[in-house]
Structure formats: C-alpha cells, structure tokens
Amino acid sequence: MQPIIKIEKLSKSFGDIKAVNKISFDVAKAQMFGLVGPDGAGKSTIIRILTGLLSYDNGSIKILDMDLKKNKKKIQDNIGYLSQKFSLYGDLTIDENIEFFAKIHGVSNYEGRRNELLKFTRLTEFRDRLADNLSGGMKQKLALVCSLIHKPKILYLDEPTTGVDPVSRRDFWKILANLLKDGVTIFMSTPYLDEAERCNKVALINKGKIISIDSPEKIKESTNKTALEIVCNDVKNAASIIKNNTELEIQLFGDRMDIISNNYKDDYIQIEKILSDNSIEIISHRNKTLSLENVFILKVKNENVEA
C-alpha cells in the first residue's frame, strides 16, 4: 500500500539547534501513528511542519502523493489539526464553534455533518452550551469535532489528552478508533507511553532523531530484556538493598517493584538470596514483558551514553 505520509531526510534547525535531524519515515493509510518523546525532542516541530504551519530546511515530504512545498494549500484542505490548547471560542456555543470552523474551511453545507459529528461524540444535548462551561473532556471532543468538520483524510493530534480524566479519555480513544475505520489516518504526538501502546506504529524520538520505529509489540521485543516483578514486605527498603548490592535497574511502585532483567532466572536467584540475607520475604514474583515506558527510558539512556 502507498504510504499516505512519506518523509525523507527531514531537517529543521532553529539557529544552532537541530530540532529535527534527518528524519525519514512512512505512515500508512488508516493507521494510528504515534510520535513519542520527551519535551524538546522535536514532536511539535514535526507536527507543525507536516500541517504546513512551519517551513523546513532540508528533505522531502509527500502527503497524499503530493509534495508539501508545492501543494501546501491543497494538502491543508485535507487535514485536520487538534492542538494541545483546543483553540475554541469560550463565549460561543458548541454549535457556533463548529459553524465558525466550517466557515474557515469553506464548508457551506455543514449542518448535516455537524449533526452527525455531535451524535458521534455524544455532544448533541449540549449543543447550546457555551464552550467555557464545558468540562475538559467535552472541550476536547468539541475541538475534535471542529477539526473534523471538513472531512479531513489525515488528523494531526498534538498531545490531545493532557488534563483530560480517564473516563473521558477512554471515550476519546473509542471515537478515534471509529475514525480509523472510516479510513482517516491519525498522526499524534504524546508524552504518555501508555497512550502510545494504542498506536499501530510508534516512532520514539529524542533530540530530533528517531531512536526506534515499529509496532509497540516489536519495539518491546527488540530489547531482549524483561521486567521481573517482585512483591515483598517493606518494598522501599528492599529496593534500596538491591540497588546497593547489584547493578540492576529498579522501578519502585507503591506495593511492588520491577527489576529490568537480562536473564530472569539468574537475576531472581541472586535477588532472592540478597533479600533473604536481609530477612525480607518475597510474597510473589513474575516475569513480564517490558512496558513501552521502560523500553523508552532504556533507549534514551543508551543514546545519551553513546553520544
């Protein structure tokens, strides 16, 4: 299948800072693609370049089979963009906000589409409410509706769920899943690795470069490490004892810890001995796949060591 977004050797500098450094990747149609990285990694810069809001220095970008530099306007007619700040007008109602965005995009017969989108996001009964009086989750859904009014083929989401509660967030993901089914391609950036697990393909970026790009499952397999979960009494104390006696990396949770392990069996034998020497009893243990967050932190650390 032809990629819907094709980026080759893209670079962008701000003065001496290489915000995006020779990045290449493809996004397939109807895929949920996630761009993940720390603050300042270049996520927002890439999204702004792809939406045509920011120029780039070098490389080539093809979107919907068109060159971004030559066909910017035509590409922009086919994309939607939901920014971190949900640019809504607080003193307009839901209906009026949607009307405003329809007119900006030159959509004249928007009423049918508006009804359909309000139903789809379950906002119909609130349509006369001012945007200022909506909850965070409802604002987010309204901003999404506004970015979909002109039936875009690609939807860009820049950290869309910051400050939105878990129930609204799950609702939001369901709406996005149904957009994929209608053939819309979703390109999003997020600092939350558990959200990245929802994508079909993920690019981990750091300092303007891609450090890994694949499905979440494949990225996790690529490290050859596992997480050894230990539940024990006085877990804080146990973690500091292990830290002092081994080189192992530990992530401490409220009632357990995960130890990043190259060899589950050997590491467990060693830990069991250290803890029993300190009269700490292990309640349970199991070997788990690493979370995407663990993998990300390992890869960024390796990069920093090599650099």
Partner: peptide, 17 residues
Amino acid sequence: TSGVDPIARRQFWELIN
C-alpha cells in the same frame, strides 16, 4: 505531572519517594 515527559516524570516520582 500534567504535560511532563516520561523521563522527567520518572525523576519526579523518585523525588516524591
């Protein structure tokens, strides 16, 4: 931790501990 990246978030939780 609203809007903070994964590495900063992990450092922050270490500090909370």
